[in-house]
Simulated scan of single mutants.
Amino acid sequence: MASFPGLALFGPVCVMLDISASSLVVAAEVGLVAGILIGCIGVGGVIIVPCLILLPDVDVSRAVPACMFSYIFAGLVGLVTFGYKKQIDWRDAAAFCASAAPSALLGAWLFAQISPFAIKITMYTVIFITSLFSLIRILWSRRNQNNKTEDSSVENKRDSSAWCLSNCGIWLQILVRLSIGLFAGCASALTGTSGPVVLLPILIILRWDIKLALGSAQAIQFPIAVASTIGNAFFGKKDIDFKLGGSIAATLAPFVILGALIANRLPAKPLKTAVSLILILASLSLLIWEIEKLRQADN
């Protein structure tokens, strides 16, 4: 085990931990798939932690900090990509990030206090809810695919972010955005999911413009990842496994770009439907599995 003395400020942060080469390869493969999903449908980091904790030498307290570290690089790629396309409302992003970063520190502290079982149950529940909502949204959009008036009305408003806030006072609008950022930051750091997994369903419920919602979700990912990594370094029960996180990031970040290119060539709705169904079934199965293991342990 080796560490950099220059990182002493962040506590006992290790850069090399014992982990098999096969596990690192699997982590890179999972990062590849997650990156493509993020590029295609905006959400993909949700699959990483559940896959990693199935490995024999990776538990949840090791997987979550490594994933949050890898999201730093994916967040940078998303921030630059969506910023270049001018799909980020910087007013929204500033408000979300201002509250998400400190709340991610809180999430990292909570992660160190809560049992692995509770973290897993929380994570699988978040996956189930977000995936179920995504599926409902897809089915609803198909039902109303001939109705284009909502999109045009949203785009013509001065505040193009959320029509439901357009008639609210400026301070209430700011408060809502800060509250959303607070929840997204804490939940993401606690469960090891990327910011878009938590933020996108909330913005869609509030009927944000979908392009701006995707841009804000990518923008918030970077500060959440940085803050939670710092928090995990200070508060974590275990050292951050930078080898594991680096293996994920090595494929996660570049394949976000590839996923965006693939999305331009494939029908989006069937892909989103398939992914949502898979995640719903997987999260339910994992929830039942964890509860059954707890029941057997009690017996």
Rank of each mutant, 00 (worst) to 15 (best):
Q221R: 05
S99E: 04
A34Y: 12
G236P: 06
A100N: 13
G185C: 03
A260C: 10
L277H: 10
A253S: 12
V198M: 06
M1H: 13
K293D: 10
E290Q: 06
L175G: 00
V30I: 15
V77D: 12
R177E: 02
F111I: 02
M1T: 11
K272Y: 06
I47A: 15
P223I: 08
E155L: 14
V33R: 01
I230A: 05
G107T: 00
L203G: 00
I278Y: 14
A21H: 11
L55I: 06
A213Q: 07
S22T: 12
V43K: 13
G44W: 06
G6M: 08
G236W: 14
V80I: 12
L54F: 04
T193S: 04
P12Y: 04
A95N: 08
G75T: 08
I36N: 10
K269S: 09
P201L: 07
L279V: 03
L287Q: 03
C40W: 08
G215P: 10
S115C: 03
A225T: 03
P5L: 01
V46S: 11
L7T: 15
N147A: 04
G45Q: 11
V60F: 00
L287C: 06
I121E: 11
L294K: 14
L199F: 00
I127K: 02
L214H: 13
F183L: 08
I114C: 06
V197Q: 05
L32T: 10
Y71K: 02
R207K: 07
F10L: 15
Y71R: 02
P196F: 05
S188I: 02
K85E: 09
L277I: 15
F96A: 01
M16D: 10
F242Q: 00
S131C: 08
T251A: 15
D59S: 14
L279M: 11
T122F: 12
L286K: 04
A162E: 05
W289I: 00
T81N: 12
L165Y: 03
P116Q: 03
I38E: 15
F222G: 06
P12C: 00
I19A: 05
Y84Q: 07
K269Q: 07
I170C: 03
L286H: 00
A253T: 03
W163R: 06
L284F: 10
S61W: 02
F183M: 01
W171D: 01
A8W: 07
L212V: 02
I53N: 11
V176N: 01
I248A: 08
A93F: 07
I210V: 13
F234I: 14
L79D: 04
I224W: 13
F111S: 02
A95V: 11
V126G: 05
L206V: 00
R158I: 08
L139E: 13
Q296R: 14
F183P: 02
R143L: 14
R91F: 00
A225K: 05
I41K: 09
A227P: 13
I72A: 05
V49Q: 10
R265L: 09
Q87L: 12
G185N: 02
L261R: 11
G259W: 02
D18G: 08
F222I: 03
L37D: 03
I210R: 01
D89T: 01
P50M: 10
Q218A: 10
K238I: 04
A74P: 06
I36L: 15
G44R: 05
L37Q: 02
L55A: 03
C168E: 09
A260T: 09
K157Y: 03
I210Q: 06
N156R: 06
A8G: 14
F4I: 10
T130F: 13
A233I: 05
V33I: 07
G181D: 01
S216C: 15
